[in-house]
Every structure is written in structure tokens, then in C-alpha cells.
């Protein structure tokens, strides 16, 4: 158990350093740090459902998108903090409503269902926007990048803290039992349906707020971009590359992803996506424990 205080200290130092980034006075680095915090928040949230229970969601962009949409619409009526809270609430509510039927579907069928469901919602929102005569929406008086960054960093820290707490909690143990064998879990008293639903809702709320923050950052909303399946794809790939089932996995995965994306995304977007696709295949087949597992193994051998 000596590793635990060490890990907490390491996470605190990383968070502290990230909190200092605005002091650099560089718009570029602040933008990069914003993206880093965003992916950490998204992937830790996704892991809460998918890494712990094994219900792999390929449709998390739906929560991110709904958060973005709710924010851009509600901004006309309320100040930013309330609108952000509403984004998170809307994403959580969507998860709550669809959770019961969707979580009855298991294994690979759940995976593909989440993908189809996200596309369905995307098309519904696109239709709604067309009906309303809106093809895209602009935001004019968004908060400063610095303010948005601090908000995103707080989300990343909260998501990481929830992941760390879950890993050793009764709740997390119940979810692990569900992942290992749902029938046996239920037979030893784990309220399977309720726990899955709870994890699903919890994993949706932060991505909803993240979607809201990103819209404020870009000052622009278009449904096909907000619900872009590439977001879901990147979440899954980064989580698997980083390593499922460890709190440090999403951090390592994000670091790797952001470096790769800074090098490639702007100039060769398709090549970047192709490399991600390749990494996904290689890691799932040959390095299922991910970067976190590799590093742990490396340290253990040294």
C-alpha cells in the first residue's frame, strides 16, 4: 500500500503544474492544456462505465454533443455557470432515460447499439436545427480561455478523483463483479441494474459539461460537429492505449494522444485518424494492458 500516497502526490503535482499553465502567458500552450484537460475529463468519465463494467460505449459523443447543444440554446436565458450546470444535467438525464433499455443489451450488441444511438440523436438534433432554420449557432460573449481552462481543469480533477475513489470503493467492487459475471454478481446481492444505471448516468454528466465548455471555447455550434463520432472513437482509442482499469491510464493515453495530435492533426488529419485506428488494433490485440500496464511491467522488472 506504499504506492497509494505516492500516486496521490503524483496526481496532485500534475494538477498543480497544470494549474500554473496560464502563468506562461502563451495562448498556444493554454490551448494545448485545455485540450489535455478535456480528454482527461472525457476519458476518466467514460472509464467509469466502460472500463469498470466492461460495457464499452462507442457513443459517448452523444453526451458531449447534447451538453454542447443545451449550452448554446440555454445561454440566451441564463448566465454561463447555470448553462453549464444544465448541460451536465441534460446529459445525465438523457443517460437516465435511455439507460434502462440500453443497458439490457449486452456485449458486442451494446457496443454497436451505443454507436447507432449516438448517430440517431445526432440526426434528430440536425433535423430539429434545420426545422428551426438554424444551420449553425454562434456565441458572442464567451468567457476568457483562461476561465474556461480552469473550469476544464476542475472537471479533469473531479473525474480523476471519482475514478480513484471508485477503484477501491464498494461501488467499484460491485461494478467489477458485474464486468466479470453479471449473473453471479446478482446472485451475491449486487443490484446489477441499479449499479449499471448509476455508472452510466455518472459517466455522462461530466462529458455533458465538457461539451458545453468546448462550445464556449470555439464560440460555434453545428450539430454534425458537436456529435462527431470521431470524439467517441478518440475516447475509446485513447483509453485503450493508455490502459483500462488504472487511474493513470487515461492520463498516459491523453499525453500520448495530444503529442500525436499536435504533430499531425493540423497538417495530416486523415493520417492522424489512420494512425489512431492502427494503434487501437495493435493495442487491443497485443498490448491489452495499455501504456499504464507496460510502464508498470517495466518498473517491476527494473
Amino acid at each position: 500500500m506504499t504506492g497509494k500516497p505516492f500516486m496521490i502526490a503524483a496526481f496532485a503535482i500534475v494538477a498543480g503544474l497544470m494549474a500554473l499553465v496560464p502563468q506562461l502567458g502563451s495562448e498556444y500552450w493554454l490551448g494545448v492544456a485545455f485540450i489535455v484537460a478535456m480528454w482527461i475529463a472525457l476519458i476518466q468519465s467514460w472509464s467509469l462505465l466502460s472500463a469498470t463494467t466492461g460495457y464499452i460505449s462507442l457513443g459517448h459523443a452523444v453526451f458531449y454533443g447534447i451538453g454542447a447543444y443545451v449550452l448554446v440554446v440555454s445561454l440566451d436565458w441564463m448566465p454561463v455557470p447555470y448553462a453549464l450546470a444544465l448541460s451536465g444535467a441534460a446529459a445525465g438525464l438523457l443517460a437516465l432515460v435511455v439507460g434502462l433499455p440500453v443497458l439490457r443489451v449486452k456485449g458486442p450488441y451494446f457496443v454497436i447499439l451505443t454507436f447507432g444511438f449516438a448517430e440517431l440523436v445526432k440526426n434528430l438534433v440536425m433535423l430539429l436545427e434545420t426545422r428551426l432554420g438554424q444551420f449553425s449557432r454562434m456565441i458572442f460573449d464567451a468567457p476568457s480561455l483562461e476561465a474556461l481552462y480552469y473550469a476544464m481543469l476542475v472537471l479533469a480533477v473531479i473525474a480523476t478523483a471519482i475514478a480513484a475513489w471508485t477503484a477501491q470503493s464498494r461501488f467499484g467492487r460491485g461494478l467489477a463483479a458485474i464486468r466479470e459475471n453479471e449473473v453471479a454478481a446478482e446472485a451475491i446481492g449486487v443490484p446489477v441494474t441499479r449499479l449499471k444505471l448509476f455508472a452510466f448516468v455518472a459517466s455522462a454528466i461530466i462529458p455533458g459539461i465538457v461539451g458545453g465548455l468546448l462550445v464556449l471555447r470555439t464560440s460555434y455550434f453545428a450539430a454534425d460537429q458537436a456529435f462527431d463520432p470521431a470524439v467517441s472513437f478518440t475516447i475509446v482509442t485513447t483509453a485503450i492505449v493508455g490502459g483500462l482499469g488504472r487511474v493513470s491510464g487515461p492520463l498516459l493515453g491523453t499525453l500520448f494522444l495530444v503529442i500525436l495530435s499536435e504533430l499531425l492533426w493540423a497538417r495530416f488529419p486523415q493520417a492522424y485518424m489512420m494512425i489512431l485506428g492502427g494503434l487501437l488494433i495493435v493495442f487491443i490485440l497485443f498490448v491489452p494492458q495499455g501504456l499504464a500496464g507496460l510502464i508498470r511491467k517495466g518498473l517491476g522488472r527494473a
Binding site: R170, A177, E180, A184, P191
Partner: peptide, 26 residues
Amino acid sequence: GRTFQIVRPFGNLTVLDNVIVSAMYG
């Protein structure tokens, strides 16, 4: 409580963790 004829262990958990979940939720 019950056992299963075709065993259903929580395979990727340790033996101790298998029974700890039981004690926590049963």
C-alpha cells in the same frame, strides 16, 4: 445464497476479492 453448477467465478479478481464483494453486497 447459491452456487452454480457451471462455475461462474469473477475470473480477473483475486480469490479474496471474490468473497469480499460477496460480504459487501450480500
